[in-house]
Design a protein around this nucleic acid. Structure first.
Lengths: 134, 134
DNA sequence: CTTGACCCCGTACCATGGTACAGGGTGTAT
DNA sequence: ATACACCCTGTACCATGGTACGGGGTCAAG
């Protein structure tokens, strides 16, 4: 049995309006409707919305999320483009992972300093990120 | 010699208005002024702004960035709170890193599928993230 | 057969994070 | 001494990503 918009929203921990907003923006496909006009979703919609929220928390815009969601292998078609786009995305992800590792390091330094009751001069967070690429 | 707002903006690759905005929002300290009222920054301001932009790209809000920037060891003071806050931040960072690794995996799967000219059914990005915590 | 929880559409509004003037002063190079 | 790039304040505006109505239809339970 198909899911209503309310069920999808609940499962994905978002507002009903958010799902309609995504549909308006073309980020999730318009689902089939019942004769009364109710949207009918499958489980896939839940996964999709969860993915969108996850990606947003990682600093991707909805536009970027849309690009990721449209990446899929269609037979005989634009494989080259898919690989190119996916590769670009992977590079950006690697960059993010690196930056997060550096931030983590900085915080660890801060905690250590605190634990040792050593006075740290300056701001370790800034210090630890010193000299990284703009 | 002190830096003008324009020099800081250029070095941090942001707009002059952005720096004034951060100051209004209390995210960077109000710098001293010349007798003519010009703001006088040090190199530190550049690092600070760069850090803010970096953190934003990683999905932190300016408010969260503000909390991170205020984390530092002050002698004799609230070490416990600093450790607690830093630990929380580290956990959130670890979560982000995990999610990014999963996204990366998903993209790698997609690229492999393309390279092998195998037809993948469904969307590998969604599939690879299946069953992860909401 | 009505009540309550849910759905529809449309439009307006909101918070965050800036960006863009307008109107005026500064500083230095020629 | 005048031009030009830069600084100041204030206020208005903008894009993104939603959120909140208002006015109305739907459907299952009692």
């Amino acid at each position: 049995m198909a899911l209503t918009i309310g069920q999808v929203a609940k499962a994905a921990h978002v507002n009903v309006e958010t799902i309609r907003y995504y549909e308006r923006e073309g980020l999730i496909p318009s689902p089939p409707r019942t004769s009364a006009g109710y949207r009918q979703y499958t489980e896939d919609a839940i996964r999709r919305v969860r993915f969108m929220k996850r990606a947003q928390r990682l600093g991707f815009t909805l536009e970027e999320v849309g690009i990721l969601l449209r990446l899929r292998v269609r037979r005989g078609s634009a494989c080259h483009d898919v690989v190119a786009e996916a590769t670009k995305a992977m590079e950006r992800i690697d960059g993010k992972i690196d930056e997060l590792h550096r931030m983590r390091e900085a915080l660890a330094t801060l905690v250590d300093g605190c634990r040792d009751r050593r006075a740290l001069r300056g701001c370790p967070i800034l210090d630890a990120l010193e000299g990284t690429n703009a």
